[in-house]
Nucleic acid binder design. Structure first.
Lengths: 343, 343
DNA sequence: ACCAGCCGTGGGAACCTTCCCACGGGCCAA
DNA sequence: TTGGCCCGTGGGAAGGTTCCCACGGCTGGT
């Protein structure tokens, strides 16, 4: 194509096509009153020269970069990878690029990344705020959309999360339907807010079902497969619960290992319900029945909200997306149809 | 902090601290002969005003953006998420940001993303090239490091990949050690190059072991859990192999499901060896013995090579990183110690 | 005592684009 | 015919930073 290393500018294109740089700029920015003749000449020059518009200069002048930041705990975590994918798909449709950062649940890293983002002059950012760095976040003068359960601490900021209460509700309903009685609970420590929300939801919904939280066994553990295995072993050390509701899939998967290596059968001896919907839950044996969070949709909707915020819309909402039950093998099918209250 | 929405510039800081904009620039860019007095005044002004240097203008003038692109098939795929994580960790150490794109194995998307990257004036890019878009890639005048097995088609470009031959070698050695005879092969269709390399490695290494490829059963399938299940069922429909070597973990996991739902035991009836090292392989039941690719390291080394390329180093190599066997439950331990050739 | 050289500093040019304004020509209505 | 208006166009300024060069003051060597 072009012979030398000379970086081309729109001025070169203007010279090649015999028009002014203003006209070249207009052609390259899409319509806006340019004659067909001029447009063709410019396009031809662009084609033969292999010119690529410099988005840096463009952004500097226009104030828009077409880039947004995504700050999540860990892209290698399947849940967050899925959120990222959802955001990317939505962003790609509007030609915006994603700058992705891992906070590793570390407020200091989060702060550094946010700083880098403001310096890069991204148009906005989607952030899963880390526990303690909360106040500081508001200080970054940049359109922000929050994701995750800690988002609720910022009532003034738009956010997208999954509806934990509703998820717990369908989970407990399903456990009721299984007819195995009150579940033992397995909860994690990853995010304090997430844990609290889960427990709070179980309390309020359990009351309706006639299952007071106080009477349930509740075991804490690290938010990992190993943590779930250990927590489940502690549970089994005292007695064998008929059914276990885990607050996340990783721990549920660990619990499954603990159940099976104790010589117990799942679901015949101990039934199990997870929460999250990670892909690995599909390939465990038996495959894990779980309440899935709409991870990909969370990313997608977060991008949509951010777009609105960037566009200057005044009332960008806080969204709570519903979870969905994925029927698999660790929770037995209901023996009998449940009474359904119509309406 | 600052009261109005006025975007601050180094000129404002210069005025506030009583020095010239050049000096402010020097302070902000790190050392380079500035008096301690000037430095302190500037830093103080920056602190109180909340000024953030505009990286757009900086990059426009300096020609460096501190951003690199990463074009991979799918960030939601655990292998690629891990590669991304490795690259990000290495990049974060040098304060460079990652622009991540998903190609979905689609040459046209790859082309679009690469175009966006050049327009953004990123300093370089790490790309897993898609099958057919190969020739086109070289056209983008931008420092490039390739990852994945198709990288070998570009002998002139630096690249990082896993050593498939070596991985197959330790896999076959392990199968020999298990004493179960010749394995059946399960291969995927995701990347033609990857498939070919796997088969070629099995052929050449099998010859040494006295296992000609022609005599092995070989089943093709889609590179997914479902594909693996289907392929395994086809295998089982004819006869029951004593041991199966799958070219990737997702298919192996599907195969495991097929084996178990046929009422067979793994590893007692059919033993299984995977390839990749995805996290889900750890939580299947039984957990999957597999040859793990060094995914995170691939990302990290790719970034290192790219840094060298960007710095202008002349001979940036093509790297081939070793795979490692992860012992788990689907392949029985050797009954007897193998004869080991010393040295 | 003088000149070379270095150090810290400042001012202007450059980076490449978009935005703003002005200008000429054609059209329509008065 | 003429005045007002819109359309397509061009030129200059702006956007915020780094780079280059020059300049004054100080030091050290002759």
């Amino acid at each position: 194509m072009s012979d030398s290393t000379a970086p081309l500018t729109i001025i070169d294109i203007a010279r090649l096509s015999g028009v002014s740089k203003s006209t070249v700029s207009r052609v390259l920015s899409g319509a806006e009153s340019v004659s067909e003749d001029a447009r063709e000449k410019v396009m031809a020059a662009v084609q033969t020269s292999g010119f690529r518009r410099n988005d840096l200069a463009r952004s500097l002048r226009s104030g828009r970069t077409g880039m947004i930041g995504l700050v999540i705990p860990d892209i290698a975590n399947p849940f967050w990878a899925d959120v990222a994918r959802g955001a990317q798909d939505a962003a790609a449709d509007e030609n915006v690029s994603l700058l992705i950062f891992n906070s590793d649940w570390d407020p200091e890293r989060e702060r550094r990344h946010l700083l880098a983002l403001t310096q890069s002059r991204v148009d906005g950012a989607i952030v899963n705020p880390v526990r303690d760095g909360l106040d500081e976040i508001a200080r970054f003068r940049i359109p922000l959309v929050l994701i995750g359960s800690s988002a609720e601490r910022f009532p003034q900021l738009p956010s997208v999360g999954s509806d934990i209460s509703q998820g717990v509700s369908i989970g407990l309903d399903r456990i009721v339907a299984a007819g195995l009685g009150m579940p033992a609970l397995l909860v994690g420590d990853a995010e304090r807010t997430a844990r609290e929300r889960f427990v709070a939801a179980v309390r309020s919904i359990g009351e309706v079902e006639g299952w007071p939280l106080d009477e349930m066994r509740l075991e804490d553990g690290h938010y990992t497969v190993d943590g779930g295995r250990a927590a489940m072993n502690r549970l089994l050390a005292r007695d064998i619960p008929r059914v276990v509701f885990a607050a996340n899939d990783l721990m549920a998967l660990g619990a499954l290992q603990a159940i099976r290596s104790s010589g117990l059968r799942c679901p015949e001896d101990v039934a199990l319900l997870g929460f999250d919907g990670v892909p690995a839950a599909e390939v465990s044996a038996p495959s894990l029945t779980t309440v899935a969070k709409p991870s990909r949709e969370i990313g997608g909707r977060a991008f949509e909200l951010l777009s609105k915020k960037i566009a200057g819309e005044p009332d960008v909402p806080k969204l709570s997306l519903p979870c969905a039950l994925i029927e698999r093998e660790t929770l037995p099918q209901p023996n009998y149809p449940r009474a359904v209250s119509t309406g």
